[in-house]
């Protein structure tokens, strides 16, 4: 019997994931099939594809996948896609404009998932700087976008950001 108070690291061969007919992630963990599995990032900012907590539909942890890259090809793709769905964090490719209108800051953004727009009441509560040149933007409704490295964006975007960072 495993120690219930220890973190269980799932060996790559003991987990296989696939996408069910209904579009939900399912899989077999330690020989037991699950019709629905949920993945949590334990360090959403620091390790985006490592230390992933795999849980059943009720939220009980089945184990930790140490590194997504270790899994077999199908599981890897399914898991990567599931992370994209669950952690909806479009990557900003261009900042069209940042404008302050009365009491709202409006961001017009181009992301890898298409154009979007964020509205914030102020900047200090809605911008996070997890380190380096990364910026996480969260709007009033909880919608998020990520700027992976603002120094690498084009000149126009940097100019827009210059006055708000």
């Amino acid at each position: 019997m495993n120690d219930p108070y220890d973190i269980r690291v799932l060996q790559p061969e003991s987990i296989s994931l696939s996408r069910g007919a209904g579009g939900v992630m399912q899989g077999v963990v330690d020989g037991k099939p699950y019709s629905e599995l949920i993945v949590f990032r334990t360090f959403p900012f620091l390790y985006t594809t490592q230390y992933l907590s795999i849980r059943d539909a009720k939220g009980e942890e089945l184990g930790i996948v140490a590194d997504l890259e270790e899994l077999d090809a199908e599981s890897r793709d399914v898991l990567r896609q599931e992370l994209r769905f669950r952690y909806f964090l479009p990557r900003v490719t261009r900042v069209d404009s940042v404008k302050q209108k009365t009491d709202l800051w409006i961001w017009e953004l181009q992301t890898d998932l298409g154009p979007t727009r964020l509205a914030m009441r102020n900047l200090h509560d809605h911008m996070q700087f997890p380190g380096g040149s990364r910026i996480i933007l969260t709007d009033l409704t909880g919608k998020r976008c990520e700027i992976q490295d603002w120094k690498k964006l084009d000149g126009h975007s940097r100019k827009q950001l210059n006055d708000v960072i």
């Binding site: 007919a21 209904g22 939900v24 919608k143």
Partner: peptide, 14 residues
């Protein structure tokens, strides 16, 4: 036949 994803949305529409 098990769970089916109807659709996905951003937090704005939660």
């Amino acid at each position: 036949d098990g769970p089916v994803v109807i659709l996905r949305y951003t937090a704005s529409l939660a």
